[in-house]
Computed example of a mutant assay.
Amino acid sequence: MLIHPMAERLRGLGLAAMADAFLDMRNQPAADDLSREDWLGLLIDREVTARDNKRFGRRLSVARLRQNAVIEDADLRTPRGLDRGLFQTLTTCGWIRDSHHVLIGGPTGVGKSWLACALGHKACRDGFSVFYRRAPRLFADLATARGEGRLARLMRSLERTRLLIIDDWGPEPLDAEQRRDLLEIVDDREGKGSLLITSQVPIGRWHEIIGDPTLGDAILDRVIHRSHRIELKGESLRKRQALAAVEGLTNAKEK
């Protein structure tokens, strides 16, 4: 068998990972004991894995998650109101399949954004399209798109995204255009996509942020009644990490 021409044919068919696996296996003595079916199965597995990793990389790039967070690193020991059972349920991404939402509240520094990014990362791993934006940046993007005549295109892009993460919602009140944009975004999610919203502002005050009773009812009715809620509490994790770092330096100097 002509080994290298065979590998080049595989590459020509767009099966680069299979070609690499073919060459690797030819150099392994243990591969001589494999049946033809096992050989083919291993080659196909390598190609499928490579393609899955590429798609995951593209989804992660488009998501633009603010933090490099993964669910496996979640701190479930520090008492901050994060229910272990609910968190494990959310990591299955069943809420995204059901077009439900997640609302994460709590004071600054308790890990709201980190948790949102970790769940967004898991959604990317499970094959869902994700897009992350801090609320001020999202509304700025919408205003710019409106001024440039491409608001409809941006809205269609957001509508096609299965999980839209809006981080740091509030406390600044929305203006009239922002209220209408938010209602359209929320309405587009109905039965087709999920929202993950983090905020320092208690849900009971979200009407104040929206600033219009009628639109507030329309927006919140679509979100709150189909949402899982996490209310984090406790001291700022950033402050705790800073104190730990200072203590570590002090101990190192004493030694």
Rank of each mutant, 00 (worst) to 15 (best):
G109L: 05
M6I: 10
R222T: 08
L151P: 09
P79A: 03
D52N: 14
I230C: 07
R26M: 12
C124G: 00
T49F: 11
R97V: 15
I71P: 03
I185S: 09
R64N: 02
L43I: 14
E159F: 13
L40D: 13
E190F: 12
W206E: 02
T250Y: 09
P171E: 00
P136E: 01
A242P: 04
S157A: 15
P173A: 02
R189D: 08
R125P: 08
E148T: 14
R133Y: 01
I203M: 15
R137K: 03
R137V: 14
R205A: 12
R80M: 14
L243S: 15
G85Q: 15
R9N: 09
A176S: 10
I44M: 15
R238G: 04
T161C: 08
M155F: 03
R11G: 00
Q200G: 11
I197T: 10
P173K: 02
K122Y: 01
M1Y: 09
R238T: 07
F128D: 06
D188K: 08
E247W: 07
H101Y: 14
R11I: 00
L182K: 10
V130S: 01
K233W: 13
G85I: 13
A143N: 15
V246T: 11
N251R: 06
W169P: 07
W169V: 03
L138F: 07
R180H: 13
F22P: 00
D217Q: 08
R153P: 13
K112N: 03
G111V: 09
R58T: 01
G94W: 01
L183I: 04
Q88V: 03
G191F: 01
P171D: 01
D168M: 04
K255A: 12
G41C: 13
R46A: 15
I71W: 02
T92M: 05
L40E: 14
T108R: 11
G94C: 07
D83E: 15
E190M: 13
F87S: 02
D32I: 10
L23W: 05
A123G: 03
R26A: 13
A21Y: 03
H101A: 09
D38P: 10
E37N: 09
K253M: 12
L65V: 00
A176R: 08
G193C: 06
G57H: 04
A244W: 08
A244S: 06
E190S: 14
L142S: 09
R226S: 09
T91E: 04
P5M: 00
R153I: 14
F56D: 02
D73P: 08
L138H: 04
L23I: 01
A242G: 00
I210M: 03
D181C: 11
A21Q: 04
E184D: 15
R180A: 10
L76D: 07
A252S: 13
T49G: 13
W169T: 05
L2T: 06
R55K: 04
A30W: 12
G193D: 04
E235N: 14
A19M: 07
L232P: 02
A140C: 07
